[in-house]
Design a protein around this nucleic acid. Structure first.
Lengths: 210, 210
DNA sequence: CATCCCGGTTACCAGCGGGTAGGGTGACCC
DNA sequence: GGGTCACCCTACCCGCTGGTAACCGGGATG
């Protein structure tokens, strides 16, 4: 655990305290979800009392949104970075899948905020998550469109499939105690994805006859 | 909308009332999520007052769990049914993907209960969802293992990828207003999946060298 | 017409958790 | 040493919602 027991006596500078609070909040929200997490819990985890929390963040919702945005952004950067880093599509697929695996394995289980957010009440939060997903899809779809000869809608649908594959695969791999080593898991998933989009141009014809 | 405005005067038999309450609860939970949904909302949707709800269900949690179990079960049956119905693996893939699409397009957006449950607090609910996912994976993995020459862990990982592909793909297709017709979307996704697992036996060798 | 019963209603209680008011204490500067 | 400022705490408030107690009315039955 990251910030389980701060001595409860330390006086920190404003910046340091804020950073520490963000870490504590991340851990608690990731573990318990938005609703089950109480502001008291977060404060306690940080070794501090509730009003301190409210001196740094206007409310529970804003605190959560701040974290959500941060980590959603991190995911998008990892994925789009992986795709932009090379021109070879096979490597792109491997790198994109690897990006999901690394994101999910990142510290503090922060991925849960993005993939398993239990805040469906707030439209802003939903928008953040959806926008992140969309940009990941866009990044993948861009690569798919150019060399599979599909129109926008169909390319995006395909891209969604790949994203779903990576996301769900990565999550499962993570809480299956990683019985399959990370590199091999990534290789398996990439192979699945790569073979899948392999010879796609001709599909546009054969797709009509389900 | 399904049960938006029951006249608020009808006296129903116990069985009929219970069924109607379940429908109302399904709609409200699916729209708003577990936390945002108030028991008053459900009662109002059913054209009834709160205590009636409590004469049929011991509490909010149990009501939700009942729905969750029902629809999780429905998903599992659709998927495993699709796979058992034929011996040809290509058809199996098509049928399984189609099962996800149909489940997601099912009435009342009930799929949200299973795929977007915002109840992370309760371990029982989590177990229901996880068990459903597991059984879907098992069904797929069974087919994959036999003819791809992979061991248990790797086959399951692959199966998870396929399940994720179908699930996320179906969800996206649904709220993209179905700009791609259902049959074609299913065909695209199946093709992606089928090609993906296509020539897998040899991968066991080539997987080591990411 | 009196009775019972069943399905329904209004009106209320209580706990939980987000958010705040006001007071203490050490560090730093004059 | 004393003023001041920043940081932090204890103690409290209050709204929201899950859950309940007590009462109501109409139809079948005799």
């Amino acid at each position: 655990m990251t910030g389980t027991a701060t001595p409860r006596g330390a006086r920190l500078s404003r910046g340091a305290r804020r950073a520490q609070l963000l870490l504590a909040a991340r851990d608690v929200f990731a573990e318990q979800g938005y609703h089950a997490a109480a502001m008291d819990d977060i404060a306690e985890r940080a070794g501090v009392s509730k009003p301190v929390l409210y001196q740094h963040f206007p409310g529970k919702l804003e605190l959560y949104q701040a974290l959500l945005t941060t980590y959603a952004e991190e995911l998008v950067e990892r994925v789009s970075g992986a795709i932009e880093r090379t021109g070879d599509n096979k490597e792109r697929v491997q790198a994109a899948v690897a990006a999901y695996f690394d994101f999910v394995a990142g510290e503090g289980k922060a991925y849960r905020l993005v993939f398993e957010s239990d805040l469906r009440g707030d439209p802003e939060a939903a928008a953040v998550v959806e926008s992140a997903l969309d940009r990941c899809i866009d990044a993948v779809a861009g690569a798919v469109t150019t060399d599979a000869g599909l129109d926008q809608d169909r390319a995006r649908l395909l891209a969604v499939g790949l994203v779903g594959l990576s996301q769900v695969g990565a999550q499962y791999w993570l809480d299956s105690d990683q019985r399959v080593p990370r590199d091999e898991a990534v290789a398996l998933m990439s192979a699945l994805a790569w073979r899948g989009i392999g010879g796609f141009p001709k599909l546009t014809d054969s797709a009509e006859h389900l």
